[in-house]
Design a protein around this nucleic acid. Structure first.
Length: 898
DNA sequence: CCCTGGTCCCAACTT
DNA sequence: GGGACCAGGG
């Protein structure tokens, strides 16, 4: 076993202790992933364990994919079968897609279908959940100012994560408000059941319930999975914990890996007790500590350890590193958020240059507490012409045009999904207005039918005015046809239909011959994989180990249970998701309408839709069904779009978990931002913030830089507010720190801690350099990110406005030039097709500034009050003596100097 | 019915 | 900075 030689004794023990429960307390950077992957390889190669009987749970799809690749490298070629490496949520989806119907209970009325979710369930994301709650509150007349849907939802999620049902939540309620929430929770559950939908929390909850209540299902998984590994164990919640217990079976071959100092998801129900009390759950457990850090320098490790040492709820550990010394922790105190970002951009630019000279592959990360902070850093990077990637924020699948199409697909898969139905019933507009929808909703309420059911009923009973009736029929037809296309019964449906409606656009059939798809989607080779089938209908996992998408097995079962199984039957044609999308886009005229708009936004939306079709084609090539495509879309997460090839990454601290970078910026170290204001009242929450800080600091390999803005704007337009340095700064030993961006002499403080030195002992003016100081007096190389170059500081002084309220102009490319827009899209992983966008002319000619006198053709003379935006979008507010304040678009306003 | 523009209120982390 | 909602005109 040559690869074992690469491990230290503790790591090796962790790998070789294969039988019985093991808890690996893996400090930051201690080679956790290496241990897990080697352990899997060891089980397969050395212990002769069948790969498919190993199950590893991770937190993100990305982590699962990476782990899969690393295992593959270690044992590659040994076997076609693979261990299943998946996120908890993806795993639960596949369990449910297979067996959720075992949870159904027979209907009280004979002859009625059983009650409960079917295999065709859809997954509701947060906005779907929000719509459900809003709808219920509206129906019940709950004032949504006293009780916001947000509050209700977070309480519902809290209850679910603690495995409380509405009744239990009600019994726990101490006041009418919480009783109301419990009631809404009950309605919410009913609504989801009616829609055959599950939310994220339900995925874990229902899978757990299924394993608990259906012995045959549980036994199946226990037989199948003999070895269980759980990553990030400190962040598991109650349902995940119970799932683990159930999957552990009687053999208890559980290997949990985690670090209590990195528990950062308690707000999602993660229970730190799971890791602190593992030994109680499994008295025979072996505990192994990995305390050598291979990632960071001693300075970084010591700084991070000093911070987290202030927490009381921890086991405590002695993390050490062989990398003595190292660069000091940098600290930069910026006058404002913009400057903070420019400092980072400048520093990164320099770092990239130097690393390139040394022949290294540079990688830097800017970490922040809240995603909204990314904007400033993005702008700064763009001004410096740096390529960067943002992880998180709004994802592809959250864009409205994508959500529209996904909603169509969800309705086609499961027409009872009323939330999706409402989204698309009049998108694009087809004459189904508010009153029509009201009528259908009322009918649904009266009859207990879903909206889709009520819609059919309304048509049958002619309950709508002629015009609306026709529109609704049209919509129904669209969905029915799409369903027929999907199931391959399209031709049949057409024949049986009394009114076939418009014929299917011929382009469809021509561009994508159905027969070809058929062949691609149902490659006979794929069936051969069942040779590796283990213990029943479950097939190999080759297809999904990387993305955690449910495996071919679901498809297998679908085919078997479908009334028209003959995928090679003459005449029957099965369509792929991509075909379906093309059909929808064509029939709804969605792209045509966007084309007609001819705006940059509409073009970019078209691009997005093309991208979606591409994604669907990839999905088809993997042999996935519509279910699987939708599951993937629902479960893909923000952290998944981290690309390690990117040299500069901007992301939240949470998203950075598990990653490492030579250079790390930890920004916004201000009380109220980090630690966040919503956490500052509860000691436990502050401890979690501190752990988050620890996670952030320990991402750094060679250099860590902490930054803070003295003034920060909380909302776009508000005045900036003065900030107080984060308490975490004070917890970093000052001797490990070097202050950046000021004269060395002022940072020469030998005792005390950083926060006190930075704030307490230095007068404000001095920390930004004495007035009138020439740049030469600053440390060479640390000057050009500062705005305090002579020419600019002159402008500031003249206007007398605090520096933090001015938008400085930075020498760089014009901000909204075509290249920069394209670059911006590229950095977000989007293609941007340049349509007809006028190239920006330099704004110098017009560029009116506050205080200037101007003349307007209609309003006469006035004084410029303020200016917002740049270039094309620049708006200026002008005070006209007779007309008051007017906000004008500079480009159109025909202003002249007066 | 649909679109527009104005106003109000919000803004933590994420599977 | 922006999403949700509403009023009012086409």
């Amino acid at each position: 076993m040559s690869f074992l030689d690469q491990l230290n004794p503790q790591q090796r023990e962790a790998v070789e202790t294969t039988e019985g429960p093991v808890l690996i307390l893996a400090g930051a950077g201690s080679g956790k992933t290496r241990v897990i992957t080697y352990r899997i390889a060891y089980l397969i190669e050395h212990m002769g364990v069948m790969p498919e009987s190993i199950l590893a749970m991770t937190f993100t799809n990305k982590a699962a994919a990476e782990m899969g690749e690393r295992v593959e490298k270690l044992v590659g070629g040994l076997s076609i079968a693979k261990p299943l490496i998946s996120t908890f949520h993806s795993f639960c989806v596949r369990v449910l897609r297979r067996d959720i119907e075992a949870l159904q209970i027979p209907s009280a009325t004979p002859g009625q279908p059983p009650i409960g979710h079917t295999k065709k369930f859809v997954i509701y994301d947060e906005s779907d959940q929000q719509s459900v709650v809003k709808g219920i509150m509206k129906r019940l007349g709950v004032d949504d100012k006293q009780l916001t849907p947000r509050t209700v939802l977070s309480r519902i999620s809290w209850a679910k994560n603690h495995m409380l049902d509405p009744r239990e939540l009600y019994l726990q309620s101490a006041d009418p408000k919480n009783e109301k929430i419990a009631h809404l929770f009950e309605q919410y559950r009913k609504e989801l059941r009616k829609a055959n939908a599950l939310d994220f929390d339900d995925l874990l909850l229902e899978a757990t319930r299924l394993l608990k209540s259906a012995a045959h299902v549980r036994e199946y998984y226990n037989r199948r999975f003999q070895y269980l590994l759980i990553d990030e164990y400190q962040d598991t919640n109650r349902p995940q914990y119970e799932l683990m217990r159930m999957l552990a079976g009687e053999q208890h071959n559980v290997c949990a890996v985690g670090d209590e100092d990195q528990s950062i998801y308690s707000w999602r129900g993660a229970d730190i007790r799971n890791i602190l009390e593992f030994e109680k759950d499994f008295p025979e457990a072996k505990i192994i500590r990995l305390e050598q850090n291979y990632r960071s320098t001693q300075n970084i490790l010591q700084a991070a350890s000093s911070v987290v040492a202030n927490n009381l709820r921890r086991k405590g550990k002695n993390l050490w590193t062989a990398r003595q010394g190292g660069t000091k922790i940098g600290y930069y105190e910026a006058p404002d958020g913009e400057n903070e970002a420019l400092f980072a951009a400048d520093h990164v630019a320099k770092y990239l240059r130097e690393a390139a000279e040394r022949g290294e592959t540079p990688r830097a990360a800017v970490l922040y507490r809240t995603n909204s902070q990314s904007r400033l850093f993005e702008e700064a990077m763009r001004r410096y012409g740096l390529k960067y990637k943002v992880v998180g924020g709004f994802s592809f699948y959250e864009r409205s045009e994508i959500k529209d199409m996904i909603s169509y697909l969800k309705v086609i898969q499961n027409p009872d999904d009323s939330i999706s139905l409402l989204r698309v019933i009049n998108t694009p507009t087809r004459g189904i207005g508010k009153s029509t929808i009201d009528t259908i909703e009322r009918l649904a309420l009266e009859t207990g039918l879903s909206l889709w059911g009520a819609l059919g009923e309304a048509i049958r009973r002619q309950l709508l005015p002629q015009r609306a009736l026709a529109a609704v029929k049209n919509f129904q037809q669209l969905i029915v046809e799409a369903q027929a296309i999907l199931s391959g019964t399209f031709a049949e449906k057409l024949e049986n239909s009394v009114d076939p409606g418009e014929p299917l656009a011929p382009a469809e059939a021509e561009t994508e011959p159905a027969a070809e798809d058929d062949a691609a989607a149902f490659d006979p080779n794929e069936l051969d994989n069942t040779a590796f089938d283990f213990g029943g209908a479950y097939t190999g996992d080759a297809a999904d180990s990387s993305l955690g998408v449910p495996p071919a097995v679901v498809q297998e079962e679908d085919r078997a249970s479908r009334p028209l199984p003959g995928r090679r039957d003459a005449g029957a044609t099965t369509a792929s998701t991509a075909d379906l999308l093309k059909f929808l886009i064509d029939r709804t005229g969605y792209i045509k309408l966007l084309e007609a708009e001819e705006t940059p936004e509409s073009f970019s939306r078209i691009e997005n839709l093309r991208e979606l079709v591409n994604a669907a084609m990839d999905s088809r090539d993997r042999g996935e069904t519509l279910d699987q495509f939708l599951d993937h879309a629902a479960l893909i997460s923000d952290a998944d779009d981290y690309d390690e090839r990117s040299q500069i990454t901007l992301m939240s601290l949470h998203a950075a978990k598990g990653l490492e970078f030579p250079l790390v910026f930890l920004s916004g170290l201000e009380e109220g931002l980090f630690p966040h204001s919503r956490t500052m009242l509860q000691p436990d929450d502050v401890e979690e913030e501190r752990r988050l800080c620890y996670v952030g600091m320990t991402r750094a390999m060679d250099q860590l830089i902490l930054t803070r803005a003295v003034y920060r704007r909380r909302y776009g337009t508000d005045l900036p507010e003065a900030s107080v340095p984060s308490r975490f700064l004070e917890e970093v030993p000052i001797q490990l720190v070097e202050e950046l961006g000021k004269r060395r002499s002022t940072s020469n403080v030998s005792t005390g801690h950083l926060g006190t030195a930075a704030l307490g002992s230095l007068p404000r003016a001095q920390s930004r350099g004495p007035a009138g100081l020439s740049p030469a007096a600053y440390d060479a190389g640390d000057t050009h990110y500062s705005y305090e170059d002579e020419d600019q500081s002159a402008t500031w002084k003249r206007s007398g406005v605090p520096a933090s309220r001015q938008k400085p102009t930075v020498p760089a490319k014009p901000y909204n030039s075509i290249e920069n827009i394209a670059e911006f899209f590229a950095s977000r992983g989007k293609k941007f097709t340049v349509g007809k966008i006028p190239v920006e002319e330099p704004t110098g000619k017009r560029g009116f500034r506050p205080g200037q006198k101007v003349r307007h053709p209609k309003y006469g003379e006035g004084t410029v009050y303020q200016r917002e935006g740049e270039g094309e979008q620049a708006k200026i507010t002008v005070q006209f003596p007779r007309f008051g304040l007017k906000k004008l678009v500079e480009k159109y306003a025909q202003l002249e100097r007066a």
